[in-house]
Amino acid sequence: MSIEKIRRSPLTALALATITLALSIVIVSRGLGILPPKDLRELGRTIAVNCFNPWNRTLTSFSLNAVSAIIWDYRGIDTVFETAVLFAGIAGLSTLFKNVKGLTLGIGGGSTLIVRKSVKLVVLLTTIASISIAIHGHLTPGGGFQGGSVLAVITSLIVVAYSIETIHRLGISTKDIMRIRYTALLTIIFIAVIPTLYGLTTGIHAYFLQNMPKDDSPISMPTNFFNTPLGGSIFFLNLAEYIAVAASLSLVVLLFSMRSKELGLED
């Protein structure tokens, strides 16, 4: 069946109307509660109570940011898989561009002096901001992914203001970035199994991705760094995720800013 037929067919209209109607009925009949709700859902409430709760040590994760606590502690395996999806996306992308010819190393003048000088300043500030966003992921809004995507902006800034050759001249190749990326992924998996490995060596029961002590397992990641809350493994996982995301996104930016001849798209 051709697209034109699908577009005009009454069946399409009927299907779309049914979806709209069904979802609207869900909302109007208060299927999701009264919008906007006045109360929290009980599960959200449990997490909001426990994300930083020194009085309930078996359920807390010592993270001021409840979202970070969910991402890396309560539902940590989701995020490990999410990183795996990101890894798969990048691996698939590198499969598509197997025969990248490499940069032809043209002159690559870049923008005017004013733009280049100011970009230098902005790059410095952005780096500091991104690190701060990542390592304070358990204290303030932010986290590994957010910090990493801010850091990847730098790559695109340099490509636009200077040229893609500048990145090459700085000694960064796509292969290096891939290597950093794999190391970060291995680090995340390693942090996830640290409690289990430690438990196996000492004979104590421990879970994958365990952060704070549980009823049947006393093993705990560090809670405080001097007097700043560390959130246990949340801090380290955020750091690894920061590197992983920054490397992946920089790779995407670098690949897509190559010339089509260099990407192997033209002969």
């Binding site: 929290l40 859902r41 599960l43 959200g44 997490i47 909001a48 994300c51 409840a66 979202v67 606590a69 969910i70 991402i71 539902r75 989701d78 995020t79 999410e82 990183t83 999806v85 990101l86 798969a88 996306g89 990048i90 698939g92 992308l93 598509l96 561009f97 986290g143 992914f145 995301v245 992946s248 996104l249 995407v252 690949l255 897509f256 089509s260 990407l263 798209l265």
Partner: peptide
């Protein structure tokens, strides 16, 4: 509620991966 926010940050990362892959496919 923090839970939908956590879901959505996961979904955003997943979509980012998928869309960069799809963009590469479109080029090919």
């Amino acid at each position: 509620d923090p839970i939908p926010q956590a879901f959505i940050i996961t979904a955003i990362v997943i979509n980012l991966a998928i869309f960069s892959f799809l963009a590469g496919l479109l080029l090919q």
